[in-house]
Design a protein around this nucleic acid. Structure first.
Length: 361
DNA sequence: AACTCGTGGAG
DNA sequence: TCTCCAAGAGT
């Protein structure tokens, strides 16, 4: 390589060339990545698992779950043989629980119909449960060295800035995809995708982007006009409605609590939960009956929670039952001493906390 | 094609 | 406190 190109960018340097050169030095070390400089290909199972967990979820939130899953289920066959309840409980707290249901469904399809080997083409990957356009492209590129166009929210932001795209999202998606295709290299498409995501996570951030430190500043229309933070332009979003519901805390005299398994296809579907009104259906927030008749008493302070598209205020009502009590519903008595192992999603973990605090008062 | 799906961190 | 939003998919 000529000496002058080490410090000055040559005219023929493409965005991909510059970004990959930067990535070779500055790539983040992450549990699902091979050590820097490794020439091997990453394990498809691990790539797939990480990509599913990372959907709409931050790296720091994913890491402990990724470590837990890979230690307990080291390959796709092991995961395919796990029980639904074990996988759902292991996923508890990470959110978007349809991902966990699809994860298990996908593992079983790969184990049964593909002999435990992940398909290596983008089109075949796209047919798997929980694998959409982004994830299929990412796995094909990262695990199998395919040249695919990987577009996630990071790439959308970076590309919107590189080309100063004025059309608001989501209408700009076709244009963004075309531009992403244009700058994707024929070689190392997987590294390029991960480099774009590293850039979006650390430098080309939503707020306060670090354009002065960006390796692509010389290629970026937005940076050169000091307008990075103006992109991507987004359509205005709707405001969140507020819903109210009741949750019933039924505790037996010997220290057991009545826990239900929520139906699939509802919110928090397949997860453990507490009986309550149908707060997840708009307009039906008051519908439902307690698992037993009795003198239910409400806690002084309700539980507040925020979902993607609505806020929820839950009133907690308590009842003490005798040991012979026989509640109605799809549930089981769970020892309060081991409530932390019940696999409750955060909403219900908040209810447990509220009940415990109420006792201390 | 909009809507529906969780959660926690950043600012 | 409040808003925004993150390696999106399914319907």
């Amino acid at each position: 390589m000529p000496v002058e190109t080490k410090t000055a960018m040559s005219r023929t340097d493409t965005i991909a060339t510059v970004l990959l050169r930067h990535y070779d030095v500055h790539a983040r070390t992450l549990p699902w990545r091979l050590p820097p400089g490794s020439s091997e290909r990453p394990n498809p199972y691990r790539v797939w698992l990480s990509e599913i967990m990372l959907q709409q979820t931050t790296v720091t939130a994913v890491i402990p779950y990724y470590e837990k899953f890979t230690a307990r289920w080291p390959n796709v066959k092991a995961l395919a043989e796990a029980s639904d309840a074990d996988v759902m409980a292991a996923w508890a707290g990470l959110g978007y629980y349809a991902r966990a249901r699809n994860l298990l469904a996908c593992a079983r399809v790969v184990a049964r119909e593909h002999g435990g080997v992940f398909p290596d083409s983008e089109a075949a990957l796209l047919t798997l449960p929980g694998v959409g356009a982004y994830t299929a492209a990412a796995i094909a590129a990262i695990a199998f060295g395919r040249r695919t166009v990987v577009v996630d929210a990071n790439v959308e932001r970076v590309v919107s800035r590189l080309f100063a795209i004025e059309t608001p999202l989501p209408a700009s998606r076709p244009d963004i995809r075309q531009k992403a295709d244009l700058i994707t290299p024929d070689q190392r498409a997987g590294d390029f995708a991960q480099a774009m995501m590293d850039l979006g996570a650390g430098t080309c951030t939503v707020r306060n982007p670090q354009c002065l430190l960006c390796p692509l500043r010389g290629h970026c229309e937005a940076a050169q006009t000091n307008r990075a933070e103006d992109f991507p332009v987004k359509a205005p979003k709707k405001d969140k409605p507020h819903r109210h519901g009741i949750v019933w805390w039924l505790e037996r005299s010997d220290g057991h609590v009545w826990i239900e398994r929520r139906d699939d296809k509802r919110m928090l579907g397949g997860m453990a939960g507490l009986p309550g009104t149908q707060w997840d259906k708009r307009g039906n927030e008051a519908e439902g009956a307690p698992p037993m008749t009795g003198d239910w008493v409400a806690l002084n302070s309700p539980v507040e929670h925020v979902f993607t598209h609505f806020r929820l205020t839950l009133t907690v009502e308590r009842l003490r039952a005798v040991k012979e009590a026989d509640p109605e519903g799809n549930g089981q008595w769970w020892p309060l001493a081991r409530i932390g192992k019940a696999g409750l999603p955060t909403l219900y973990a908040k209810v447990v906390k509220a009940v415990m605090q109420d006792r201390d008062d």
